[in-house]
Nucleic acid binder design. Structure first.
Lengths: 106, 106
DNA sequence: CATACATTTCGGAAATTATCAATATGTGAA
DNA sequence: TTCACATATTGATAATTTCCGAAATGTATG
């Protein structure tokens, strides 16, 4: 699948969405420990649940959920559901390809 | 001056503006020869006048002028006026820094 | 099953963007 | 100075985006 530069640009043209991406570069540094309430231990791969992101972003849950969806549809985030929680993490592959695209083709 | 990721993303989140940037990578290949009507020869550094871009974009002059201004305010284009014409060209410095930013800091 | 909680989706008001036509401004030529 | 032309600005309307609260949907637990 090729990167969609317009969708990506739209996703990045909002301060909070940009911040979410940056925060997720260092989940341990930016968010409380994740997955503590899960019944069995799972490798979350740096994923952070919506409520933790929402608390940090200081916006309504629906807005944050919507932002995360925007970032995911642009290919910049991946999500995985475990129990009641959805854990979002960066999609480094897309970000790498974005950097490549800007450098070589923009 | 640092790059403004939000302004840049907004500027890039439009197909025509994205195309203008790409077209200007190869001005000779994408536009008619420039500067032919100027009284004295000038080094246009690959710059292309608004009407040539407008003809290729197939949008109204005011829209294209506005797009070019948007791209310039984001730092992605440079302009130089010669006589009646304004020649726009890419600002490779910003584009390089954008690629760098995406790779290292996004 | 009933409840509680995490998240998503929906519906809408306010803000922003897209796009044009009309007008204004700058510039060289007659 | 007057004209024609290249570009920029303005004003308007349509489309999109932002962001919320309300409602809906999953999911574990009592």
């Amino acid at each position: 699948m090729d990167i969609d530069m317009i969708e990506i640009s739209k996703a990045l043209s909002n301060e909070t969405r940009l911040n979410i991406l940056k925060w997720l570069k260092d989940p341990e540094g930016n968010f409380p420990p994740q997955g503590g309430c899960l019944s069995e231990p799972v490798d979350l791969k740096g994923g952070v649940c919506v409520s933790s992101i929402q608390a940090k972003a200081n916006l309504s849950p629906s807005t944050v959920s919507n932002y995360l969806d925007t970032l995911q549809r642009a290919g910049l985030l991946l999500s995985e559901r475990h129990g009641k929680w959805t854990y979002y993490r960066r999609n480094e592959e897309t970000i790498r390809r974005l950097a490549e695209f800007v450098k070589e083709e923009l």
